[in-house]
Design a protein around this nucleic acid. Structure first.
Length: 576
RNA sequence: GCGCCUGUAGCUCAGUGGAUAGAGCAUCAGCCUCCGGAGCUGAGGGCCACAGGUUCAAAUCCUGUCAGGCGCACCA
């Protein structure tokens, strides 16, 4: 695990203090509690705080404040190289202030680890199968699919970043009624007959009809052919979105043609969870807490969607080596399916939490605050492709990730295109580009961006410096927490905050010495003005050492922004 | 009717049982001789839907009520 160097150091320091307190007989500590470190809400309360004294109060049968005093007594003297202060605050907090040098070690660590910074061993040895998008090949991807793609893609990156072994998969519903309906709709257009009931409409159906008419060879199976065309489009869209899948799983080929559906149902039958009634075949999902039993094979002999989904999940469960966790990203309107799918997982003998479902809520498309109306019935859907073309994949992804997945999202096309601070993606990308720009200017003037080893950090002695450094130290812990909660949106919030801190610092402090006279020195570099004349804002004197340290600080901030954007699947531009 | 989700600043939303609940937008008031103003600073704004309960401690957990969304097919 890596929760970052500061947290780990403080954690082990705290652990040792508790042990010392026990050895000294000051505390009983029959059980060692989990040591949780929180970042206090106010910086005046220190850098990290623990509530362990309050948690111990019952088992120690003492007042929390008293316990906090004891712990802090053992905390300070022996470990003065880590902590500057350990304050006790009512009703029993221990507020820890970290020595400045420890913060500076974070900067060196980021530089050393580069794009590896933030990795941890949290998920080491654990295999995860992440299924997402899985849109039916009956039409182009719409906004909801786009959001699912953004969430799934970011989640895959995030989990991999903390060492989970992640496989991504797209389930292609290329069998069954919907596909037949779509094909029938295409045929109806070509035959100029009326659409089937619940048939598909929209421009793409007419496009397909036209393509079909122009197809050089006769097409024996329109459904198969149309699915393939639509799947090509879906794949192209996802490629434009830079979302990749390790496996495309075909319902038709891998479940029906292979006989896997029958096999899966046979397993259920052997376990006694299958029964016949009213001429249909049922899965006894109520045995596992579902509201009602579910039909898997209809009176007409056709399998339901659930039957293939059961078979699909059995296939996922049985893969070798086994997955420790199956994650499905579903549209929120499918939430009613969770109990029956988990019932199937249990029926197959696995714990039901082997399957976790992330529900993605709908996206309301706006333009300049006005709702863009869509009618699914008439086939008037705004496709993800249209949105990418209008606002770009970066903006789309970032905005999709600005809310919790299960919270509805307003997506404003005008805002997404806007290149201002109101658009969160530009705000964050701009922070990255701004550092890149600063380095370009530095290079022009012959000022090197130094490596951390050669920097005198002690010049970074203002609270503003720590405001920028502290979130960098929190980054690994943030990734772990986001991964554990399966919530990539936390990272977007983090990045907005970090970018904001960079912008504020940049505005407040000068990094490079200003050039007052546009003179060139002997090496054709712009000549910096004399130091004495160089008064920055707030009367700050900018020394070369300060320039060096701040450049270095900015570079590691840039690294973290780039890493974070990378996990979200968003590019980190050098200029904008 | 039953189930799931959601009620947090004017709006959109963060907030893994811990301190005086935060951000962006909007509103108002400020900030460009100099590294990208695509930016920054400040102010106002809250019975965390409501009522009980658990706990040393609740926006967070439990129960109920109210409001909104979604689902309740031998559709997917």
């Amino acid at each position: 695990m890596s929760a970052g160097i500061v947290r780990e150091t403080v954690h082990s320091t705290l652990q040792k203090a508790l042990k010392d307190a026990k050895t000294a007989g000051d505390l009983e500590l029959t059980t060692l509690p989990a040591l949780v470190l929180d970042v206090p809400k106010k910086s005046a309360w220190g850098d990290l705080a623990t509530t362990v004294a309050m948690n111990l109060s019952v088992s120690e049968r003492r007042a929390p404040m008293e316990i906090a005093q004891i712990i802090s007594k053992h905390l300070l003297p022996a470990h003065s190289d880590v902590l500057a202060r350990a304050d006790v605050a009512p009703p029993g907090y221990i507020n820890l202030t970290v020595k400045r040098d420890l913060w500076f070690r974070v900067l060196a660590e980021i530089e050393t680890q580069g794009e590896q910074y933030g990795r941890s061993t949290l998920g080491l040895g654990k295999r995860v199968l992440l299924e997402f998008v899985s849109a039916n090949p009956t039409g182009p991807l719409h906004m909801g699919h786009g959001r699912g793609a953004a969430v799934g893609g970011a989640l895959a990156n995030l989990l991999r970043h903390v060492s989970y072994d992640v496989s991504t998969e797209y389930y292609i519903n290329d069998a069954g009624r919907q596909v037949r309906l779509m094909a029938a709709s295409v045929t109806a257009v070509n035959n100029q007959t009326s659409l089937p009931e619940d048939g598909y409409q929209g421009a793409y159906i007419h496009d397909l009809a036209k393509q079909l008419r122009a197809f050089p060879q006769p097409v024996p199976n329109v459904a198969h052919w149309a699915c393939a065309r639509l799947l090509e489009g879906i794949k192209a869209d996802l490629q434009a979105f830079n979302i990749t899948f390790d496996r495309w799983f075909s319902e038709q080929k891998e479940l029906f043609d292979s006989g896997a559906v029958d096999q899966a149902l046979n397993v259920l039958r052997q376990q006694g969870y299958l029964f016949e009634q009213d001429g249909a075949l049922w899965f006894r999902s109520t045995a596992f807490g579902d509201d009602k039993d579910r039909v898997v094979k209809k009176q007409d002999g056709e399998y339901t969607y659930l039957a293939s989904d059961i078979a699909y999940h059995l296939s996922k469960l049985k893969r070798e080596p086994q997955y420790d966790l199956l994650i499905n990203v579903w549209g929120a309107d499918h939430h009613g399916y969770i109990p029956r799918m988990q019932a199937a997982v249990e029926a197959f003998g696995y714990p039901k939490d082997r399957l976790k479902v992330i529900l993605v809520q709908i996206v309301n498309l706006l333009r300049g605050g006005q709702r863009v109306t869509m009618s699914k019935r008439a086939g008037e859907m705004v496709t993800v492709r249209e949105v990418f073309e209008e606002v770009g994949a970066d903006a789309a992804k970032f905005i999709f990730l600005t809310r919790r997945a299960d919270s509805q999202l307003d997506f404003d096309l005008e805002l997404a295109k806007q290149q201002s601070a109101e658009n969160p993606v530009y705000y964050v990308q701009y922070a990255h580009a701004r550092v890149a720009s600063l380095f370009r200017v530095a290079r022009e003037r012959g000022i090197d961006v130094p490596v951390t080893g050669s920097v005198d950090w002690s010049v970074l002695n203002s609270p503003d410096d720590l405001d920028l450094i502290k979130p960098l130290a929190e980054y690994p812990a943030l990734l772990e927490a986001s991964a554990q909660a399966l919530e990539p949106h936390r990272l977007t919030y983090y990045l907005q905050d970090l970018a904001g801190r960079l912008h504020a610092y940049y505005y407040k402090h000068r990094i490079l010495p200003p050039v007052l006279e546009r003179e060139l020195d002997s090496q054709d570099h712009l000549k910096p003005v004399a130091q004495e004349a160089d008064q920055g804002r707030k009367g700050e004197v900018l020394t070369p050492a300060l320039t060096a340290a701040r450049l270095c600080l900015f570079r590691v901030v840039q690294t973290v922004i780039r890493n974070g954007l990378g996990i979200l699947g968003v590019t980190a531009p050098e200029r904008m």
